[in-house]
Amino acid sequence: MRTKRLLAATGLMALAALLTAGPASAASTEDGDKPADAGTSFRTATEIAQGDKATASASTGDYLYWSFPADAGQRPTVEATVKLPDAASRHADTRWRIDVYDGLRRRQSCMYGMQARTAPKDASSVDLACTLRPVRAWSDPWANDPLPGTYYVRLTATGVDTADLGTPVTAEVKTTSKDIGGAAAVDGTLGSPLVPGKRVELSSTEPEDGWSSGWWTDRWVWTGIGGVLAALAGVGGYTLTSRNSPSGV
């Protein structure tokens, strides 16, 4: 299977030169149907697409769950804003936190971003952010690398005074991702993305234009250009030797 893949890929490399522009994949996420509620467990997580701004009205102390798809080569960033109730009705500081879990419910670390923040008593909102490591197409079963599939976001107050429990808040969550490209292109692919519940449909999330097949990486271009340059340099080196040869030889 692997050899077949390689052969087909090499054939395509030759054809790649013929390609100047393919059908542009319009990545529009402009539709008016934004999720306005959140789930309260992994099982009931509200599915959102990348780029969508999901909102939910909730109570302080609720555990809010959303899920979104992330594909290989992307570096997702989750941003959340919690609008807090009036300062007058609050009693103490509250600590808010987002956690991101992969399709196997393994917690994923954040490279950057304030993942947890304490909201002072008089603050009107809290901003949280978490940038995951780049999603890789494959990793060892023993590793905890982010893999293509469903990602869960959990937003909650981890430190809350009893007197503040249950007060109304509104939460906003948005996920975006940066294209990391070939730098994170690893060898191998998963049999299928880590979307939980293949049989029982726990999650049906999918990127807008489907999961990537794992064929494309800009390493093809780098290596191709490298080959061409090497050939040119070879010709250059050869002509250099013949030009330097003394006439008459």
Partner: peptide, 13 residues
């Protein structure tokens, strides 16, 4: 698929 190399298809960059 098992990975035979660190980079995709063993390509460079």
């Amino acid at each position: 698929d098992d990975a035979s190399d660190v980079a995709a298809f063993g390509l460079g960059r």
